[in-house]
Amino acid sequence: MTTTRRTQAQRRAEAEAALLMAAAELIDEQGVRSLTLARVGERAGYSRGLVTHHFGTKQALVARLARTAQAGFVPGLDGLPPGLDRLLRLIDGYVGQLGRMSVLNRVFLLLWAEAATAPDLAPVFRERGEAFRADLREELTAGIAEGTVRPDVAPEATATAIFAQLRGLGMHHLVDPGNTDTERLRAHVTEHWRRALTRT
């Protein structure tokens, strides 16, 4: 019987993933203010020293968690060229995913709301928000170039409006999930933006 020994990089990646999930679960259950490195280590089955070794500070841990939680929220977009079709799929997929949010997704929104009154979190979420808006601007600019988006659409302002609507719907679903029919909303919101961005 043979066993495959994990490399140091594999062990590190596994430990980081476990620590991030432990942090997410604690925030989801009790809020970010109750989070400590010691509690994260305990939840994950590691020492506080290992948490400090991997992340350094609570702020760095939360920043990594925010980036990890946002990555790949809408599946199925890889390989699609930028433009109107990809943008509408992103909008439809984002609203649809709200009905299937994981712990990481919920925690991202909780942290985003917390960033409004937490100076240490605000820079991380300004960065994540700008990255999302930049993606939206790219889709809009490509759509204008290919002729599928109206030429009078302002990419910057429109990207901000789409961003704000999607994040707002996420927060609404988080606060009042019983009154958010994401399957009905996704068709409505996607059609709204299709009409707003095209001549038809």
Rank of each mutant, 00 (worst) to 15 (best):
E16S: 15
L98C: 15
F163K: 01
P81S: 04
L88Q: 04
S34Q: 06
F125E: 10
P82L: 13
T198Q: 08
Q70F: 02
V189D: 07
L169F: 15
G178E: 14
V149H: 00
V51M: 02
P119Q: 05
A118I: 02
Y94F: 11
A44M: 14
V189K: 00
L104Y: 12
E156T: 10
L174K: 01
F73P: 09
A17V: 08
G170C: 10
L169P: 09
H173A: 12
I144M: 09
P75R: 03
V32I: 11
E146L: 04
P123H: 04
V32N: 11
T36Y: 07
E139H: 09
Y46F: 14
G129C: 13
E114K: 01
A15F: 00
G45Q: 05
V175P: 10
Q165F: 09
L109H: 04
A142W: 06
A66P: 10
R89A: 12
G99N: 06
E127S: 10
A9G: 06
G96T: 00
A159C: 08
Q97H: 04
A116E: 09
V153I: 14
V175W: 09
F55T: 06
D28S: 08
L166R: 07
E25V: 13
E42D: 00
A71W: 04
R39K: 14
R33I: 00
D135Y: 06
I162R: 02
E29L: 15
E42H: 00
P177S: 05
E42I: 00
G143T: 08
R186H: 12
P75Q: 04
V95I: 04
D176I: 10
R128E: 15
G31E: 03
T2D: 11
H172Y: 10
A116D: 05
A23Y: 01
R133M: 12
W112H: 08
T52A: 10
R128N: 13
G147E: 02
R150E: 09
R43C: 05
T182A: 05
A159Q: 06
E29W: 08
P119C: 06
T190L: 12
G168R: 00
V103C: 13
A24W: 03
T141V: 11
H54I: 01
V175A: 15
E14I: 05
L65P: 06
T158E: 15
P155T: 10
V175S: 12
R199A: 15
R64W: 09
E138R: 09
A15S: 06
A164F: 00
G168F: 01
T117I: 09
E114S: 10
A66D: 03
V51A: 13
Q10A: 14
T141H: 01
M21K: 11
W112S: 07
A159W: 03
E127L: 11
L65K: 07
M171R: 04
T200C: 01
P177Y: 03
T141G: 06
L169I: 14
D120S: 13
R67G: 13
V124C: 08
F125N: 10
A60V: 03
T180K: 02
R186K: 15
R194Q: 09
L20Y: 04
A71R: 09
A38D: 04
L166P: 10
A145L: 04
A69K: 03
D92C: 11
R12C: 00
L110T: 14
L37R: 06
R100D: 12
R67H: 14
N179D: 11
L104W: 06
T182S: 05
T141K: 07
